[in-house]
């Protein structure tokens, strides 16, 4: 018996999950010599707010050049333009650096597991950021400060290379001016005139006030910096299950299909990039994993 003609047609393709959406640069500003912030809006719906959770990232696409995973640095409690704070270190990020107001780019996301901010309610919060690692933590800080009364003591410990490398300076100033937030800032080395802390970020941790039995730490920075930070936090008595870190691996598809961002059993793009530290503690020190 012949089949109906419809059966001969190939099955139609479902929507392509890797298709970007066109966005435009609504504003851009320089943070440091190699870090800049872009504010973006959808090309077809300029007023549309971009919903995301702290710690999530987008894939940003520059026509013909490629895509890069960049964490979202906006304030999730004040939905509006999509904000990315980017360090120009590679081909695509340098092209992003060159974008001007009105220029187009592709965006897909948000992707990834967020910082578990709710889990920190009722507890002390320690935010430890290294360099550009402050950018993915900014949404978390915004969310904590928006509901400040729900948290215990709040410390923001930020280390970067030199005073010239301090990004999000206005935010840091605003946070520092609050009487109920402890902002500790250090630079690895400083030229004359700098009156703040000098030394690695781990050396500042003993100055962060928290109750290790009832605290949550959120750590983001270069892997080496995080390695020594979690050691120092453990030294302070904070259990691995109270520490969250973000991992970075080569992300190509961002949706768990391409295999590039594997880190032991984890796919950094969908199981992370935020991990509770005890989940990856066993493999964290293994070289070349």
């Amino acid at each position: 018996m012949p089949r109906p003609a419809a059966d001969l047609r190939p099955a139609p393709l479902a929507a392509e999950p890797m298709l970007p959406r066109a966005f435009r640069v609504a504003a851009r500003r320089r943070e440091t010599h190699d870090v800049f912030t872009l504010e973006l809006e959808p090309a077809d719906a300029p007023g549309e707010a971009f919903a995301f959770e702290p710690g999530q990232f987008n894939m940003l696409y520059v026509l013909g050049a490629g895509e890069v995973p960049i964490s979202i640095s906006g304030d999730p409690t004040r939905p509006g333009r999509l904000m990315h704070t980017v360090r120009a270190v590679g081909g695509v990020t340098r092209l992003l650096e060159g974008l001007k107001k009105g220029d187009s780019l592709g965006v897909r996301g948000p992707y990834g597991a967020p910082w578990p901010v709710l889990d920190a309610e009722g507890r002390d919060v320690v935010v430890v950021a290294g360099g550009i690692g402050l950018a993915p933590l900014r949404p978390l800080i915004c969310q904590v400060l928006a509901r400040r009364d729900r948290f215990g003591r709040v410390s923001i410990v930020f280390g970067t290379r030199s005073p010239a490398d301090i990004l999000l300076a206005k935010d840091l100033e605003r946070w520092r001016s609050k009487f109920d937030v402890d902002v500790l800032l250090t630079v690895d080395h400083a030229p004359p005139g700098w009156r703040g802390h000098v030394g690695v970020v781990t050396a500042l941790l003993p100055r962060a006030a928290f109750d290790p039995a009832n605290a949550r730490a959120f750590v983001c920075g270069p892997e080496v910096m995080m390695r020594f930070t979690v050691q120092e936090l453990a030294h302070r008595g904070l259990p691995a299950a109270s520490v969250h870190v973000t991992m970075e691996r080569n992300m190509k598809c961002a949706i768990g299909l391409c295999g590039h961002c594997q880190y032991g059993p984890e796919f950094v793009c969908k199981d992370g990039p935020v991990f509770r530290f005890d989940r990856i503690e066993r493999i964290f020190g293994v070289r070349e994993l």
């Binding site: 290379r161 030394g199 050396a203």
Partner: peptide
């Protein structure tokens, strides 16, 4: 020991631009 450790970390220059 802590100062030496911190100095080693500084030598690593962990925030330097890669490459």
């Amino acid at each position: 020991e802590r100062r030496l450790h911190a100095t080693r970390l500084q030598i690593l220059d962990v925030y330097a631009a890669p490459g």
